[in-house]
Amino acid sequence: MAAPLLQTRDLSMHFGGVRAVRHVDFSLAEGELRCLIGPNGAGKSTFFKMLTGQLQPTHGHVLFRGQEISYAHAHEIARLGIGIKTQVPSVFDGLSVRENIWLAASRIHSREQTKRVVDEMLERVGLIEVAERLVGQLAHGQRQWVELGLVLATDPQLILLDEPAAGMTHEEVHKTAELVREINRTKALIVVEHDMQFIRMIAKQVTVFNQGSVLVEDTVESIMRNPQVRDIYLGKQAAA
């Protein structure tokens, strides 16, 4: 098997006495799509923040294509090719949709290319109609896509999505799942999600977080059948 795209070794994050992430050994292959599930407070978002340089781990290592990035700045990690869509959409609310995508595309493309890439991206995430509107005035679901468009426009090798389907209508969830599968044709992804419907639509391999550690890692079917996972997380949905 080829060297992993992303690897963490003994990764831990403590906030005072709270151990948000504990000794996580995680590995993601090139081109893989992985879902991350776990109850609230399991450490998924903290894990993402360490992968993107928003938090510096208390100890442990993060390796991207073998390169140590545990203590790199967020912008350096972004330049290496990791993009993230955060849980609460982090976008430029006071700017137009087009300007948002432009800011992302402009980081890696020349002037002329940027224009073309922006138009293509607006088409791809279905925002061409609202391209001149301020992002702050859009509905939550649309703002999620703006952020997705931003991330894609920087052409990252690995994309982290933190609850991409949150607050979306049923139809929008389907559209997002389709988009995720399409992205996965060329890029690796890690997706944090609570919506099991959504996970069934996209997932192959699932990692379950609980209390800061990896509980189990398996295919989506086995995870659904795993009684331990049901107990901590799926209980309410499985029972329903």
């Binding site: 967020a74 982090s90 609310d93 800011l103």
Partner: peptide, 21 residues
């Protein structure tokens, strides 16, 4: 100029896109 306005609007996002604010 457009980038500094972006940073004013959302510094964290600009950083996550690869700009050093």
């Amino acid at each position: 100029g457009r980038i500094i306005v972006g940073i004013r609007e959302n510094e964290r996002r600009a950083e996550l896109l690869g700009y050093d604010p």
